[in-house]
Design a protein around this nucleic acid. Structure first.
Lengths: 340, 340
DNA sequence: CTGAAAGCGCTTACAG
DNA sequence: CTGAAAGCGCTTACAG
């Protein structure tokens, strides 16, 4: 831990240069890793920096470089309300980790996606940040989709919407992953396969439902048992209830998120239906929720933290002027535990 | 939505002044709301600002004012892992809302509280932010407690630890609130009153347990039935199980968080025990979890969003050079629903 | 390899 | 009430 005397003004480059016996220019050069500096100069400047506990002034740097060294983390308000979904927390953690070794800071922007405040738009487009991450299950259908044309933007999850130019995003192949989860159920000999789907206005909701359908079609099984949730635990329980009402003969459910799966399991147990014997459950995410519930969930693993890290790396690459791929699809795999 | 031409460089104060036919000084004065400016000048500058869609350059401003206009939001990593607790999401939302009308931005700092990276310490104390919010259930026992001496810091929840100077914090009277919740159970005629407590190294955990004990003592009731959780849903279920094992005769439980209460309820229902008939439950928080579970929770309401707002207001006051009170204790009340 | 100088976009005494 | 000027702390051609 560094001890700081708040009374003393922070040392400037000037002071470092003086202490090192070189000019401000030279001091600046070693700070910025220029190669054209003599070893002697490097050494003495570095010593001075250490001794004075020098930290460059961000504002001064920003002013000359016209870079803010700040990246916005745009979180739709309803997302933070539903932060209960560990998926988001993991993504954010990944982004933060991916930025750890850089000099960028993350500024938090809570947005109302359906009606972005002009203040936020001005903040984002007004040169206050060098880029933005958008973390939301239904990002892109709104003002956020257009953002990419004025600012480097990386989305967590494929954005909806029809922006002219392609957006950067990191995602998994939701359809394929859902099909994989469903196939596991089929392979176990299950035949009455229901699903609890995510909202049909979110890519993750849509694609996972498609995957479930595709796997059933391949196996010549009907896809008539579907109920919608909103990715929350409570909605999972409710969807399970209505599924049970309408299709008492179902023998398993592919659930589009672990949180909903936990809700579904608790509903089943309350109704005295055994999991997985009578009804098997496959979840999606492999979030902490998968292991902390009443029964350990068999689920499709999604590398959420890694996705966040990749978002950060993509942003850093763009900022370096490189040309990273627009799409990053990370691999998923099935984790077999006790629920199916 | 503002349309922005990314190709054109952002207009400077210079440009505004020129367009308004005044000097840079005057333009700056109207921008900063100085009173010593003629109405004419004010009007023409404002027109120029609107026409050019001028946004002041933060870096330049920071450089001369030596204010960063940035506030750190320090979130311990384990907190974000447990972000599932809507309490934190609400606090953060409140902070963001309280800052909405200010020019401050919130930078997110994920910290490992037991071993703060020197990078973060340097960031916080190195003049990169004007203040910091610390949001954590066990803030203060670590490096964060000392932070207050070098930087304005406002804690969410009373910090532990023995810092020399008093810290700023916003909290509720956890002990009194817990006693209120417990008393509700007593008033219903319950006599075998257990508790599921929060961790004993967190103020919220400690104080709520104290409140439960105090209410029981007042009523001449024993306080022998206690199990610990860690504020997560899963831990609530597990604590309920062990309570039931050891004290099959309990007739109600005061639970130190809604999330744990939801876990407890689901455990009870699985064991075929009716809520509230056989076992009544009182939770704590009045978070969304209280209304979305299998049974609507009777719970102690804590104004989480308002607490966040108050944290922001306190910070803003400190930054204005005012002398706000160090402690803000917000009121709680009981919300009676179906679980007790 | 090095230093003197200009300049990034603002604010604020200072003199009028 | 207003403008010319200095200065905040850096970086980077430019000339050597």
């Amino acid at each position: 831990m560094t001890t700081v005397n708040p009374a003393r003004r922070a040392p400037t480059l000037e002071a470092v240069a003086a202490a090192a016996g070189v000019s401000r220019s030279t001091a600046s050069r070693v700070l910025n890793g220029s190669t054209n500096v003599s070893p002697d100069a490097v050494a003495s400047v570095e010593r001075a920096v250490a001794r004075l506990d020098y930290v460059p002034n961000r504002a001064a740097r920003s002013l000359v470089n016209s870079q803010t060294m700040a990246l916005a983390l745009v979180v739709p308000e309803d997302t933070i309300r539903f932060f209960g979904d560990p998926y988001f927390a993991a993504i954010v953690q990944g982004i933060a980790r991916g930025l750890e070794d850089s000099d960028y800071v993350l500024t938090l922007q809570l947005a109302n996606p359906s009606e972005p405040s002009t203040k936020m738009v001005r903040y984002l487009t007004g040169g206050n940040v060098d880029g933005a991450f958008v973390v939301s299950h239904h990002s892109g259908d709104h003002f956020l989709a257009g953002l990419g044309s004025t600012l480097p933007v990386v989305f967590g999850g494929r954005p909806l919407g029809d922006s002219e130019q392609p957006n950067y995003f990191v995602d998994v192949d939701n359809a394929a992953a859902a099909a994989m989860g469903t196939r596991h159920l089929i392979d176990q000999g299950r035949r009455r396969i229901a699903t609890i789907a995510g909202p049909s206005d979110m890519p993750a909701g849509i694609d996972r439902t498609e995957g479930w359908k595709a796997a059933l079609a391949d196996a010549g099984l009907p896809d008539d048992m579907l109920a919608y949730g909103d990715f929350t635990l409570a909605s999972g329980a409710q969807a399970m209830r209505s599924l049970l009402d309408q299709h008492p003969d179902l023998d398993c459910v592919f659930v589009a998120s672990d949180l909903m799966a936990v809700g579904a399991v608790s509903e089943l147990r309350e109704q005295g239906i055994s999991v997985p014997q009578q009804v098997a459950i496959v979840g999606f995410d492999d979030s902490p929720a998968a292991e902390t519930g009443a029964i350990r969930l068999t689920t499709v693993h999604q590398p959420s933290v890694a996705m966040g890290v990749r978002m950060a790396e993509t942003m850093l690459a763009i900022l370096r002027g490189e040309n990273p791929p627009h799409e990053h699809i990370l691999p998923t795999h099935l984790v077999v535990r006790d629920s199916a």
